[in-house]
Amino acid sequence: MSVIIIIFLATGLVFFAGGAIGIIRFPDFYSRLHPAGKLDTAGLFMTMIALALYTIYEFNVDNLITALKIILIVVFVFLTSPVATHAIVDAGVRAGLKPWTKEKEKEDNK
């Protein structure tokens, strides 16, 4: 049981680390949103499953309700994370930020 928990938690931490490094490495605002909005969601999903499993390891009603609350957080994040990402993209588009493309990068280098 604890092996499964450790595997899930480690996968979640790898996703989180990928999200953080992706935010640093990607070239512009639009492509930074890809790791920020969604690798974080996947990492939260994995981490929360591990923690919910650890919580219901000793089974009683209180622990079951706590685990269900953790699952509720996951459902909530899955609903709201795309909306938050879309709000940030929309703000960028309305402000007139141009997306980074390969052609533009080549022109800048010339």
């Binding site: 890809h34 909005g37 969604k38 690798l39 996947a42 795309p82 990402t85 588009v93």
Partner: peptide, 12 residues
């Protein structure tokens, strides 16, 4: 929302 959740694509 499904498009945005699938990484690599964001609905603008």
């Amino acid at each position: 929302n499904s498009i945005t959740l699938t990484p690599g694509t964001i609905t603008v």
